[in-house]
Design a protein around this nucleic acid. Structure first.
Lengths: 121, 121
DNA sequence: TCGTCAATTCAACGATTCTAGAAATATAGG
DNA sequence: CCTATATTTCTAGAATCGTTGAATTGACGA
């Protein structure tokens, strides 16, 4: 994730409807959800949902696939984790003590395995 | 960091000049930099810099203090780490395997101490 | 107090973004 | 082939954002 991609990602996440969509899709998991369900869930019109989902897809934060009559959108976990990494790199830059709270929070979320068990990417 | 604060933070970071300012201030460390230096460094007019710095301050990402004739801006490491935590929480939600790469990247940056040495915040 | 330097505020303008509804496209079933 | 469903595309208008230059405020030294 370079600065330009991060800029696009931040832009995409800086809008209430789109942030809600991403959070919804993260909760939904890799299976994703059809556009219509997303629209209903976040409370926007079909065309509005399409506009924002297209924006998110352009920014690389979600992916889409057609499935019969529906188009299924799912969160791009690769992009999200890349964005976290971008923020961490910048935030940590020479300030070890700073990032620790964030890492601790992640540990609190009881989902992130310790870094030492993970191969460097 | 709640959703509204995150929204403001993303909005603040979604603009080239402002992202550059934050990165500059992170590099500068807690000591910060005067507005004039920031303006020169990122290549914008004095009033433009003031506009964007005010925006960043409203979003809580930077802090300011007067020092003689200058106003010194510095990054809010608390806010930045809060933003990372927000993203981690959402990103990790039920997907342990996802956040690991981000954590690994942070470890690569050779700046984040292992979470177990840190008190939960 | 006056002049100067550092920074902010203000006003105007162009550009981008968001929203809403109508029309178009793609898929499936009868 | 016709109809219904799911979604996107198009168009237009309102709102927000970013930039610029001029005017203003605050702090300092002579």
């Amino acid at each position: 994730m370079d600065q330009t991609q991060a800029l696009d990602a931040f832009g995409a996440l800086s809008q209430e409807t789109r942030l809600a969509m991403v959070r919804l899709l993260v909760r939904a998991g890799p299976g994703g959800l059809p556009a219509g369900t997303i629209a209903e869930e976040v409370g926007v019109s079909a065309s509005g949902a399409s506009f924002h989902l297209a924006h998110l897809e352009r920014a690389g934060l979600v992916e889409s696939r057609r499935e019969a009559r529906s188009i299924i959108y799912s969160a791009s976990f690769t992009a999200l984790s890349g964005l976290v990494a971008f923020l961490m790199r910048d935030c940590c830059q020479g300030h070890p003590e700073i990032c620790a709270p964030a890492t601790a929070t992640a540990a609190d979320a009881a989902c992130c395995t310790p870094a030492r068990e993970v191969d460097h990417v």
